[in-house]
């Protein structure tokens, strides 16, 4: 994409944004940041759980066992995370 279609803003244009536009951008960026955090977690879980649950790639669809394993893997990972956080809070006290 070329800058002429308005994709890239220069700093003078940015500093000219009025307050309501700035607030709109803050809300937008907060939303996008939360969405992106979820996306990155899904990338991480898929990477880890695919490695553990999918034995071979001799079919292009998931078996029911593999599907169950992936769901368990995600839930176990999150349970572990909660346990670790609680454990560390306990250590701190």
């Amino acid at each position: 994409m070329s800058p002429s279609n308005g994709k890239f803003l220069d700093s003078t244009e940015l500093s000219q944004l009025d307050d309501s536009s700035k607030n709109e951008m803050v809300t937008f960026l907060d939303n996008e940041t939360s969405k992106q955090k979820v996306q990155m977690s899904i990338h991480q879980f898929t990477n880890t759980c695919f490695r553990n649950c999918v034995a071979s790639a001799n079919s292009s669809s998931l078996s029911p066992q593999e599907e169950q394993c992936l769901a368990n893997c995600v839930n176990n990972f999150l349970d572990t995370k909660i346990r670790v956080v609680k454990g560390l809070q306990h250590v701190k006290e």
Binding site: V38, S41, I42, F45, T46, C49, F50, C53, V54, A57, N58, S59, S60, S61, L62, E66, E67, L70, A71, C73, V74, N75, L78
Partner: peptide, 18 residues
Amino acid sequence: DQCLNKYLKAWNTVSKTY
């Protein structure tokens, strides 16, 4: 190719669960 399709399906399963 099969692995790629399987990975994308796994991505969807993980996404739904999470």
